[in-house]
């Protein structure tokens, strides 16, 4: 165990927890394809967005299906 890295032997102040990027997941109402982008202010789950093109079919209407902060996967 390495006590010097973030353990109880660390003397300096703990680094401030970083704000992680929140991701908005959208589903195209025309082709059903899912895509994601960084969260934009006042996005909400089940909001129908009319001004963003679907990367697959080019459709302009999408629905926000989820909003969350992705977590880093621990390597096994």
């Amino acid at each position: 165990m390495r006590y010097t890295e973030g353990g109880f032997m660390t003397w300096g102040p703990r680094p401030r927890e970083k704000m992680l990027q929140t991701i908005t997941f959208l589903k195209c109402l025309e082709c059903g394809a899912e895509n994601s982008r960084p969260f934009m202010e006042w996005d909400f789950i089940f909001k129908v967005v009319g001004n963003e093109k679907c990367p697959r079919c080019g459709g302009s209407r999408s629905r926000i299906v989820n909003i969350y902060v992705p977590e880093k996967k621990e390597s096994k």
Partner: peptide, 15 residues
């Protein structure tokens, strides 16, 4: 610290 992050979430309307 949690309050600080919560203030950012509420200032943008994040779940």
């Amino acid at each position: 610290e949690a309050y600080r992050m919560a203030s950012v979430a509420f200032s943008q309307g994040q779940p």
